[in-house]
Design a protein around this nucleic acid. Structure first.
Length: 686
RNA sequence: GCACCCGUAGCUCAGCUGGAUAGAGUGUCUGACUUCGAAUCAGAAGGUCGCAGGUUCGAGUCCUGCCGGGUGCACCA
């Protein structure tokens, strides 16, 4: 039995008592954590609500405290409850039987490092994240997306959900076309030239870095080298021609673009692998086009009557989706164009087709082939048009698509098109509804003025006056992910080398790597999704205070205690469990260290640690990983305080020592599990 | 013009479906390493929760209006 089950049981008793004593049927009973541990383990503010309902129902005015007093007597019969107090204006505060629950929590099975066994019987949830245009290296804004998405995946898995992770590859879009224009018309290269270049590039400037620089040149190229002038129409036509070639496929230009995009995807996946971020499926836009997903979606949408062919006005010849919640003006139309007057489909249209496929309502499927095998044997697959790829005998292919719920991790600037996608899907398949599509939006990562100065970026006067500057791949304005990870690893390595000279270089590097990942992931997760991160080097590179390494350090300390205790820890916990079951005298001795002011302080760590399941459930429901990050830090902080105040190994009293061991055991298990769900490993030493 | 997001300590941010005395980190100042590791801990100082109304037992949280900042409203993605 865990804390959630105990709470649910008490809530049911409150409901039953309210009905019995006052004849009031409560919809739900709220439980909260009292502001201070000495006020109890669980609080019900239910008496306030009951006072109101009783007055409405009968006209009798009962003070909340009187109501609470009557409920108190009923609750005190539960075996998990030690006593109940009425406090304040009418709070019902529950104090648990500490010795009993300590034994209960101490024997709970350890979580298997946040990787639960697969649950094939469960309906599948789809999470799309990363989805970086494959034309350049990833910057920290992209990493925010990937870390948010990956952590949300881990949260769903920790909540026993079945999840499929997809990364959308927009390999036929404008951004890829631009880099292709750069290779063909600035660098004057053909496919063989690019391959030769690729293999000659130094490791510190890989292909995606090369494309990053080239991409910034293309913007200038369109404007004949002067950023102030209007684009050169002749040169812009080169882009249109490339775009057209990409959509058609089967040309030397398309082959060149495919190489460029695929190599960038490989580089980006390498970057993400450094942060423990992996994928199940890479869904390529070219395959959505060439397998005619849109044609099918178009038919479904027309049949459902969600599209209207405009015959007059400035949208004449376009198929549009009416969007009445946005009122139109002269400047801004309220309807969303899905098919252009030249017959081509917009991005939103393609996304509706893709979303219908994710939910298993398109009636078409991709073909698949393996893209990358991870060291643990997991395979990231990629979509393809070639049907024979299905036949690869040595790799069993999972079934992709057909989820019941879709989460799209996309920055909040795209909330308007995302809303249209959700409504389009709901209109075609009313039975799944708009609720099956969730836009997991987040604000951008921008650059603080200090960060711009450090990067040597010249700001315009207008930008200087702003609180932050938006990153721009087009302008080459941004912090590349690999550069930042390199810096973090170098900083961490320097620390580890001085602290642990006894470790081998390889061990020091591995530890530095784990610390760097912890620092970066935590930094990106501690902000809630709708807060803009004004990126600051000093803050991002910090290992002290509210950081990932702080949390890792607490877990490392806990582990070192158990390393020293050896077999004694398990024996002590077993003895404690034995004492509390059916030996009243021994049980009361176990209660002693948990009583009084000092005992409450120790006990509060247990209660906090056991709240992990509740926090995971909250994060899964609200799609807000920041809650888990904050919780993990709070737990680490509480453990550090406990660690500082109580010397376990030096403790002479055997019973108290066993209690402290059990408490530390619970805390380190939950802390390790919380960190794993954040994608943060616990080093051996640090 | 319309829609969405934000405004909380000097700075960066939390604040669960309305609940008890609004919290962290950072910065400043002061203490604690002979101990299971100081990437740590303790203490001090720091607040008109943007402003004004309203809803109620109770509002940082909900409603209305206003002020200030951000984003979106493409036959781009």
């Amino acid at each position: 039995m865990n804390l959630i089950e105990i709470q649910d049981r008490l809530k049911q008793q409150v409901r039953a008592s309210a009905l019995e004593l006052f004849g009031v049927e409560l919809d739900q009973v709220n439980a909260e954590t009292p502001p201070r541990a000495e006020l109890g383990d669980l609080a019900f503010p239910v008496a306030f609500e009951l006072a109101k309902l009783v007055k409405q129902g009968t006209g009798v005015k009962l003070p909340p405290r009187t109501i609470a007093e009557q409920l108190k007597a009923k609750l005190e019969h539960s075996p998990e409850v030690d006593r109940v107090e009425v406090a304040g204006a009418g709070y019902l505060n529950v104090f648990f039987n500490r010795a009993r629950l300590l034994a209960l929590f101490a024997v709970a099975k350890a979580d298997p490092e946040g990787v639960p066994s697969p649950l094939p019987d469960r309906p599948k949830k789809m999470v799309e994240h990363t989805s970086i245009n494959p034309n350049k290296a990833a910057h920290i804004g992209h990493v925010r997306n990937a870390v948010l998405g990956d952590t949300f995946v881990r949260i769903l898995q920790a909540a026993d959900e079945r999840v499929e992770v997809q990364n959308y590859i927009d390999n036929t879009g404008v951004q890829v076309a631009d880099v292709v224009v750069g290779f063909m018309h600035i660098e004057k290269m053909n496919l063989d030239d690019i391959k030769a270049l690729d293999s000659s590039l130094p490791s510190e400037r890989p292909f995606d870095y090369y494309c990053w620089d080239l991409y910034t040149k293309v913007g200038l190229f369109y404007r004949d080298g002067n950023p102030q002038t209007e684009p050169n129409a002749e040169r812009l036509k080169l882009r249109t021609d490339v775009l057209h070639a990409l959509e058609e496929g089967n040309s030397s230009t398309a082959a060149l673009a495919d190489y460029v995009a695929t190599r960038n995807v490989e580089c980006i996946l390498d970057t993400m692998e450094r942060l423990e971020i992996r994928y199940d499926l890479l869904a390529r836009e070219s395959d959505i086009l060439h397998l005619h997903f849109w044609d099918r979606a178009f038919e479904l949408m027309k049949a459902a009557g969600v599209l209207r062919l405009e015959t007059e006005g400035k949208h004449a010849g376009c198929w549009v989706m009416p969007f009445e919640s946005h009122t139109g003006t002269d400047e801004h139309e309220s309807d969303k164009i899905i098919v252009r007057s030249n017959g081509t489909v917009t991005y939103t249209g393609k996304d509706i087709a893709y979303q219908l496929w994710k939910l298993g309502h398109l009636g078409l499927d991709f073909n698949y082939k393996p893209f990358r095998a991870y060291p643990d044997g997991h395979i990231a697959w990629v979509t393809t048009t070639e049907p024979n790829s299905e036949m690869l005998p040595e790799v069993p292919r999972p079934d992709f698509g057909s989820g019941v719920k879709v989460y799209n991790v996309i920055d909040s600037r795209q909330s308007y098109p995302q809303e249209i996608v959700a409504r389009g899907v709901a209109a075609v398949v009313p039975e799944v509804g708009a609720d099956s599509s969730t836009h997991l939006g987040y604000e951008m990562v921008a650059l603080s003025p200090a960060a711009c100065a450090e990067l040597g970026i010249q700001l315009s006067d207008a930008d200087r006056a702003r609180p932050f500057v938006e990153m721009s791949g087009r302008k080459g304005l941004g912090v590349k992910a690999d550069d930042l990870i390199d810096r973090l690893e170098a900083d961490a390595f320097r620390e580890v080398a001085t602290r642990h000279a006894e470790l081998s270089i390889a061990e020091q590097q591995e530890t530095a790597h784990q610390i760097a990942v912890g620092a970066l992931r935590y930094f990106l997760l501690k902000f809630t999704r709708n807060s803009v991160i004004a990126f600051d080097f000093k803050e991002a590179l910090s290992f002290e205070g509210e950081t990932g390494p702080y949390c890792q350090y607490a877990a490392v300390r806990a582990n070192s205690i158990f390393r020293k205790l050896g077999d004694e820890a398990a024996a002590a916990v077993a003895a404690l469990v034995d004492d509390t079951s059916g030996k009243p005298e021994m049980a009361s001795r176990v209660s002693e260290p948990l009583a009084g002011e000092s005992g409450t302080e120790i006990w509060s760590l247990v209660m906090l640690a056991e709240r992990l399941d509740e926090v995971i459930a909250l994060c899964a429901a609200s799609a807000e990983p920041a809650n888990l990050a904050k919780y993990t830090f709070t737990l680490a902080r509480a453990f550090n305080l406990f660690y500082h105040r109580h010397r376990i190994i030096a403790e002479q009293d055997e019973t108290k020592r066993a209690v402290l061991i059990a408490v530390a055991q619970i805390a380190r298990r939950r802390l390790t599990s919380a960190l794993a769900t954040l994608g943060i490993a616990v080093p051996e030493r640090m």
